[in-house]
């Protein structure tokens, strides 16, 4: 883990203090990792029987996998200084497209590819709107969020066709696993590893940080900002579509409510995991730890039989606290550097 994080640390934090605990905290995503550990220890000690119950582990994997996959794409966008609110709508729309093709009787692999291509296309549209048309990412992705959520509802509500009863292989893809771990969780692990290695070792990965850190400087250095950001949006769309297809397979039905709150959860998880809306910070493992923390939190509330609304209240305050602490640290660092 340290070998992967070391270059990130170099990029994002050049000014480390002498205190080693503070050093540890400044490694990107370590706060989320610590929070995960605390939640895990808390759950493992207080309710070991319920927590290590196979059904609970299963539920946790199903909760973590799709949002984790989406979070990878979101983190890449956040590093480069933009974000995407349309991921939830992409999940629903791509899932529905795959379901429609399956009901029409096309081969499974073709259906999945079509679903993924839909995601890539929506990501491309987002990228064009943000980079070519120059529309603020908040507005343009809210626009596409509206459009594709509306399109999903338009295609599903009040139609006589039910998009369910898919071929068994497709359903097993969402429900079965390998070595006791679900396919979707394997996919998540592979994607996290691949994208982490990509970002740490490839020049394009470093360019993402440069673009997020200082757009104009990156341009002067000759980095093709537009190309990279549009690519990042396309990856985000692709991953969201993949998550949507996996959810559709698991449910054995297209569902228009898929991803209703995903964009919020994922952004919150990424910010907890060290990302920043200002860009230039964050790491893929951080995003994963953020999602795992959220899932543990949800799990804790379920196991202790709390009302689910309590969970959102605490989540909101956790987000505000994390963001404020981050802001406070940045402010102090800038004061030390004499920028303020």
């Amino acid at each position: 883990m340290n070998r992967i994080k070391a270059p990130l640390q170099k990029i994002s934090n050049k000014f480390l203090s002498k205190n080693s605990f503070k050093k540890l905290l400044k490694i990107n995503g370590s706060i989320a990792f610590l929070m995960c550990l605390i939640m895990f220890a808390f759950l493992a000690i207080s309710v070991p029987k319920l927590f290590f119950n196979p059904f609970n582990i299963q539920a946790l994997m199903f909760a973590i996998a799709p949002e984790g996959i989406v979070a990878i794409g979101m983190m890449i966008l956040l590093i480069s200084g933009v974000f995407d609110l349309s991921v939830g709508s992409v999940m629903a729309f791509a899932g529905l497209m795959t379901a429609m093709m399956l009901v029409a009787g096309l081969p499974i692999i073709v259906c999945i590819i079509i679903g993924l291509l839909v995601g890539v296309a929506i990501g491309f549209i987002n990228g064009l709107l943000v980079e070519m048309a120059g529309i603020n990412p908040l507005i343009s992705t809210i626009g596409t969020m509206y459009i594709f959520r509306g399109a999903t509802e338009f295609l599903m509500v009040g139609r006589s066709v039910d998009y369910n009863n898919f071929p068994e292989i497709f359903v097993n893809f969402g429900r079965k696993g390998f070595l006791g771990v679900y396919w979707m969780f394997w996919i998540l692990i592979i994607l996290v590893v691949v994208f982490t290695i990509f970002i740490v070792t490839r020049p394009t990965g470093k360019r993402l940080y440069f673009i997020g850190g200082n757009e104009n400087l990156a341009k002067l250095m000759g980095i093709k900002k537009r190309k990279i950001r549009i690519g990042a949006y396309m990856i985000s769309g692709l991953l969201a579509a993949l998550a949507g297809i996996l959810m559709t397979a698991k449910n054995d039905a297209a569902n228009r409510y898929i991803g209703n709150v995903t964009h919020m959860n994922v952004i919150i998880a990424c910010v907890i995991g060290g990302g920043s809306l200002n860009g230039g910070q964050g790491s893929i493992p951080g995003a994963l730890f953020g999602i795992i923390f959220l899932s543990f939190l949800q799990n804790a509330f379920n196991l202790f039989d709390f009302e689910s609304s309590m969970q959102r209240i605490i989540l909101g305050f956790v987000l505000m606290a994390v963001v404020s602490v981050d802001g406070f640290m940045t402010l102090r660092r800038q004061k030390e550097l004499g920028r303020i």
Partner: peptide
């Protein structure tokens, strides 16, 4: 900040 407040108030 207001995203956090939004989540908390919705809860």
């Amino acid at each position: 900040i207001t995203l956090g407040m939004m989540t908390a108030l919705a809860g």
